[in-house]
């Protein structure tokens, strides 16, 4: 299983699409590693710096609704993976992105809009999230305190994470 949890990158916007996560011009790469410098390069978000410390040190992303809409490119989860971000927490995901995350053995966690807003309350320079995968819970800790949230994932998504991804799961079963 992958390592889940760590410093948080807060992206306070809905409908962030996969072109913003990794622009199409980098889709000519045939290795995941080559994507590494280009994470969130075209993100339209006031004050966001793709090369800044918050983005570069992050291991978890917290964002709003419909994250990962648009293109089916798995380069979007990959660019996170090669930047050591294995968890995205949002109030909702686009279907293909969500599936791609689990297919890579990564975590796409859905929380209610209220819980997402509560997570944003903890935003400061030191925000970090611990994931207790076994118990379906996550804990945010920052200069503003600490709080634990419960989440749901389907049995299938859990099995994919445990197997290391869909290829491993499918190859063993079919």
């Amino acid at each position: 299983m992958k390592k889940f949890g760590g410093k948080v990158l807060f992206l306070d916007r809905s409908d962030i699409n996969t072109d913003e996560i990794i622009p199409a011009k980098y889709l000519t790469e045939i290795s995941k590693e080559a994507l590494q410098p280009h994470m969130l390069e075209d993100l339209k978000l006031e004050g966001f710096d793709p090369q800044g410390a918050e983005a570069r040190e992050a291991e978890v992303i917290v964002t709003r609704a419909n994250f990962g809409c648009g293109s089916s490119r798995e380069h979007a989860p990959w660019v996170f993976e090669v930047n050591d971000i294995n968890v995205v927490i949002a109030s909702s995901f686009a279907r293909i992105f969500r599936q791609n995350m689990f297919n890579c053995g990564m975590l796409a966690i859905e929380l209610s809009e209220e819980d997402i807003s509560a997570l944003f309350e903890f935003r400061d320079d030191d925000g970090a999230i611990d994931i207790d995968f076994k118990n379906n819970s996550l804990t945010i800790t920052s200069g503003k305190g600490s709080r634990t949230f419960m989440y749901n994932i389907s049995e299938f998504d859990r099995a994919l994470v445990e197997a290391g991804g869909w290829l491993e799961f499918a190859d063993a079963r079919y």
Partner: peptide
């Protein structure tokens, strides 16, 4: 349905795909 590369890979290898 559009899918990512891993779904495509399993599709190529096994001819199956998972959906809700």
């Amino acid at each position: 349905a559009g899918v990512g590369t891993t779904d495509l890979e399993v599709g190529i290898l096994k001819g199956v795909c998972a959906f809700r």
